[in-house]
Design a protein around this nucleic acid. Sequence first.
RNA 1: CGGGGUGUAGCGUAGCCCGGUAUCGCGCCACAUUUGGGAUGUGGAGGUCGUAGGUUCGAAUCCUGCCACCCCGACCA
Length: 493
Amino acid sequence: MSKGLPKRSEDYSLWYNELVKRADLAENSAVRGCMVIKPYGYSIWEKMQAELDRMFKETGHTNAYFPLFIPKSFLSKEASHVEGFAKECAVVTHYRLKNAEDGSGVIVDPEAKLEEELIVRPTSETVIWSTYKNWIQSYRDLPLLVNQWANVVRWEMRTRLFLRTAEFLWQEGHTAHATKEEAQAETAQMLNIYAQFAEEFMAMPVVKGRKTENERFAGADDTLCIEAMMQDGKALQAGTSHFLGQNFAKAFDVKFATKEGGLEYVWGTSWGVSTRLMGALIMAHSDDNGLVLPPKLAPIQVVIVPIYKGDDQLNAISEKAKEIMVALRKAGISVKYDDRDTHKPGWKFAEYELKGVPLRIGIGPRDLENGTIELARRDNLTKETFDLSSQAIEEKIGNLLTEIQDSIYKKAFDFREEKITEVNSWDEFQTTLENKGGFLSAHWDGSSETEDKIKELTKATIRCIPLDQKEESGTCVFSGKPSKGRVLFAKAY
RNA sequence: CGGGGUGUAGCGUAGCCCGGUAUCGCGCCACAUUUGGGAUGUGGAGGUCGUAGGUUCGAAUCCUGCCACCCCGACCA
């Protein structure tokens, strides 16, 4: 393994691919398009899950689990939904294998063809709504607020670790409500939770917005999203929340008796974030030395590396290190003491930098003498000597972790702000997209035709109509037709 | 799925045009000296050259099929 990582400035996607592999986050598997999420990568995902799960439960949702397989007939019940997913579904056609007669191995038993083929879920609206039909009879059964953590399969042509894989992990919330307003409020609430999670935990600023008709989820009346800006100037959709109207209720005949004695279709929402967030996290903060993790999601927040000659020194240092470790753990900070003597300190420094551990404590003989430790920050690569008698260690480290969390958010925020450009002419649109990238805030006439045409010409799409869009009359950057406000265009992942 | 490229030890590669059983670096193992930013030396282990056929006395090398991966398009969270 060569030492350095490729440079972002030279080959961004190579940098990303190498970083994912070298930081032990994930690797390609024996199965095309599917990845193995390695223990270190998975522990970051677990931290994300834990926070999101807590937030879902705090807002009244409970977890459940629905089947991986969906009868083919279910998928076709909602017309636009099936159209949206048909091209990327894996299909189970048989249920048995047998030994080949020529001894060449196992073959699919042609006798064991399924009556009705099963689709490996690309998303679960259909199975879930077919179940909700039985769960919902009265307004008293509403709202129904369910989430599931699951894997889904979308047979993608081109895959990239975390960003787009044939199988990925996600959570999908599926709720049912008595009124349109309540379902819309739920859609907005969950979007806000995603935005809060992204900003507070991932330290990644996002734009909250609404998808255009072209980009909307198949089967939804309205799709809200959070969009993030990556370091190469491309946008990444980090989460979506859909208002499903009564589309699935009608498709699966889910009605409820109202308080007034009427019978009405329920209103639905669905919302999800996936392991794609891992890709967003990596691309939002990391640098040419490796991963940079926000303390709130780092599996290891602090690593202690001893610098020593001989067992006597190591023993003395270990004693100090363990003392510090106990104090930090008591304060809820996750610490690893790396006293392996199979690797030298310099090697460990580079290794933990690659893996994005936010803080490193170095303790050597000089420190023991002086009652100090060396503190090195991953985010800005600065070091300081800390006098242990000046302040409680857990307080010092706690403050530093908070500061790092804030600091990487601010850095990402400033970067994102710098990458939003208001453009007012087609010429400016093209030049900016070409030379600077990022979000282009531009007037749009509201038509799908214009959106398609712009995509065809520049590969940029409308990432969203920001929820905080200012009313401002102008003319469409492409067609010159009147427009009521600016939308965000960008090239996207 | 279209166009281009690649596949040789755990990883990265040379060799392929011009056929003769495989090069180098990292990593791994042992020992010694080292340890405040990826240590050094000496010795050692490890390869059905993606896979299945074909041509040939002989194939990593030439030919054909298949598979996987990468880049560029169409599709997508």
